[in-house]
Amino acid sequence: MREEIITSGRMNPMIDPQLHIWHWHIPLYLFLGGLAAGILFFAALYTILGKEKENPTAVKIAPFITPILLVVGLFALFLDLNHQAYFWRLYTTIRLESPMSWGAWTLMVVTPISFIWCALNIKEIFPRWEWKFKFLYDLDAFFRKHLITMSWILLIFSLILGMYTGILFSAFNARPLWNTSILGPLFLTSGLSTGAAAIILMSKSHEERLRFARIDIMLIGIEMFLIVHMFMGFLASTQVHIEAAGLFLGGPYTTPFWLFVFTLGLAFPAILEVLELRKFKVPYMIAPMLVLMGGLLFRFIIAYAGQASRWLY
């Protein structure tokens, strides 16, 4: 029986600490990307459904923060690179096998559309805004004419963006905690939920807030189901997956995850939103702020814990 194993002398002191290769940049970017994807998804969805009037914040106001989120996120990604002068190599290749490659291309679609979306709605923020040149008016008219087509593109690509943030992790079989295909849908749901939360925070209309509270409750429900499902999958899998799950079931990430993400970031805000729908007087800011905090923390925990999980040999 194997009772004791001592592995010593890998003798690469400069390398082993470097194996924790991703620090704050990647989880921050995944949060911002997911949040932007969520907001843009709802903006595109309600434009396609023709319900801009009922959801003024979701369609016209909330998208204003998405270019900022995406640019800050992209800048974080850039800072994360070790060979920064060659970042443009991302855009000289398309590698479908690599989630990072098609994620980079997805951003090249979503980011410009987010800027165009803001430009089309700029009068909502600055009522007396005038474009300085005629061609800008022409462009404005062009995009307005093709608004529905653009919304469909945005709808699809925002879903891909939200999904890819999870698939980026799930493609790595070397880190068993990440190596689950549930992570794609889970990060997408979390992104949509944080998007809904951001819209609630910015909305001035009570009806719109309640509508998004309803959507958010549903998304949180799905997310909690996916999380439980993920751990069930790990526990029914191989030893490395059981040990990866162990990081959250008694291991170092137990309290941060189950208390701050699952309870305070998902369950508690869902309860607050249910109470609000039942006409209890709850300050409406609390639930969405907790959802946003939970979403950010969730990505940090998954990014850090994933790098602590490994194959045994």
């Binding site: 690179l81 070790n82 060659y86 991302l90 990072m100 070397a174 880190r175």
Partner: peptide, 18 residues
């Protein structure tokens, strides 16, 4: 190489370094 670290995270043998 852009130094993104994806390959380092993906290697089960931890054979790569920046």
């Amino acid at each position: 190489c852009i130094g993104c670290g994806a390959c380092i995270a993906s290697c089960p043998y931890d054979a790569r370094f920046p």
